[in-house]
C-alpha cells in the first residue's frame, strides 16, 4: 500500500528542487567554461584546454593577488578567532552590565551595509596610511568576520558548564589554566570552524577590498573584477572553479569539525 499523494509536499518538493537548481546552475556553467578553448567567455564551451589554469598559475599579477588574499585571510582568521573567542568568553561568563551593548557592537558589522563600512574605513585608512596594506586589510576583515566567530563561539561556550572551570580552579588551576585545559579543548572544534568561516569570508570579500586596494596591493576578488572589466577571458571561470573547490573543501572540513564537537558535547 502506498500512502496517499500529498499535493502540498509535491509543490514543496518542486520548489526546493527549483531553488537548488537555481543555485547550482551557475556552477554547472562556470566549470565547463573554464576549460573552453575560445579566448572570450562563451557558453556552450568549445573544445577542452587547461591553458586558462596555466595562465592563472603563470601570471605574476594573479599570483600576487592570490598570495595577498591568502595572507589577509589567514591573518584575519587568526585575529578574528583570538579576539572573537576572548570577547565571547567575556560575554558568556561575564557579569558586566555592558554585555548587551558589547554584543550589539560585535554583531554590528553584519547589520551595517558593507559599503558604508568600506567608505568609512577607506577615508580613515587613507589618512593614517593603512590603505592598501596587509594590516589594513586584516583589520577591516577582522571586523567583518568577528560576528561569525562570535556566533559559533557563543553557542559552543554556552554549552560548557561554568562549574567545570570552577572545578578546575578548585583543583589548583589558575583561571587561564582552567580555560586552557578544560574550556578550550571542549570548544576547539567550534573555534576551528569559526576560523574557517573567517578565512573564507575574508578570502572572497569584494566590497571592502575594492575600496582598500591600492595600485599594487590587490586582493584576488578585486583583481578578478578588474579582469572582468578589461579582458573577460576564461581565466575568470578557471579561478572561480578553483575557489568553488576550495570553498567546498572548507565547508566539508567545517562540517566534520562541527559534527565532532556535537558528539563531544553530547558526551559531556
Amino acid at each position: 500500500m502506498k500512502p496517499p499523494t500529498d499535493r502540498g509536499s509535491l509543490v514543496l518538493g518542486a520548489y526546493v528542487y527549483a531553488v537548488l537548481t537555481f543555485i547550482i546552475v551557475p556552477l554547472v556553467i562556470v566549470i565547463p567554461m573554464s576549460f573552453s578553448q575560445s579566448d572570450y567567455l562563451a557558453f556552450p564551451p568549445t573544445g577542452f584546454t587547461l591553458k586558462w589554469y596555466a595562465e592563472y598559475f603563470d601570471s605574476r599579477q594573479w599570483r600576487a593577488a592570490t598570495w595577498l588574499s591568502v595572507q589577509v585571510a589567514l591573518l584575519t582568521a587568526v585575529c578574528a578567532s583570538l579576539i572573537g573567542t576572548a570577547a565571547t568568553y567575556a560575554m558568556v561568563r561575564g557579569r558586566s552590565r555592558f554585555v548587551a551593548l558589547f554584543q550589539i557592537l560585535l554583531i554590528g558589522p553584519i547589520i551595517v551595509p558593507h559599503i558604508a563600512l568600506a567608505v568609512g574605513l577607506y577615508l580613515f585608512f587613507q589618512t593614517i596610511g593603512l590603505s592598501g596594506t596587509v594590516p589594513g586589510f586584516v583589520l577591516a576583515h577582522t571586523v567583518l568576520t568577528l560576528p561569525f566567530v562570535v556566533f559559533t563561539m557563543a553557542a559552543a561556550l554556552g554549552k560548557v558548564d561554568a562549574n567545570l572551570e570552577a572545578a578546575a580552579m578548585s583543583c589548583g588551576a589558575t583561571r587561564f589554566q582552567a580555560f586552557r585545559f578544560v574550556t578550550l579543548p571542549l570548544v576547539l572544534p567550534s573555534l576551528a570552524s569559526g576560523a574557517l568561516f573567517a578565512f573564507i569570508i575574508s578570502f572572497d570579500e569584494p566590497v571592502v577590498s575594492f575600496f582598500l586596494s591600492g595600485i599594487r596591493q590587490k586582493t584576488l576578488p578585486r583583481r578578478m573584477f578588474e579582469d572582468i572589466e578589461q579582458n573577460l577571458t576564461p581565466v575568470i571561470p578557471a579561478i572561480a572553479t578553483l575557489l568553488i573547490v576550495l570553498s567546498i573543501a572548507i565547508l566539508l572540513g567545517g562540517h566534520a569539525l562541527r559534527s565532532r564537537s556535537k558528539t563531544q558535547s553530547s558526551a559531556g
Binding site: 558548564d161 572545578a167 578548585s170 589548583g172 589554566q177
Partner: peptide, 27 residues
C-alpha cells in the same frame, strides 16, 4: 580559589568530559 589547597565536590559531578577518568583524577 586555586591557591587554597581545598578539595571541592560539586553538585553536577563536573568531570572534564574530554579527559579519561585517570586524567580527571590526576588533574
Amino acid at each position: 580559589s586555586n591557591r587554597r589547597n581545598l578539595g571541592m565536590v560539586f553538585q553536577n559531578y563536573t568531570l572534564f568530559p574530554h579527559m579519561s577518568i585517570l586524567d580527571n583524577v590526576a588533574f
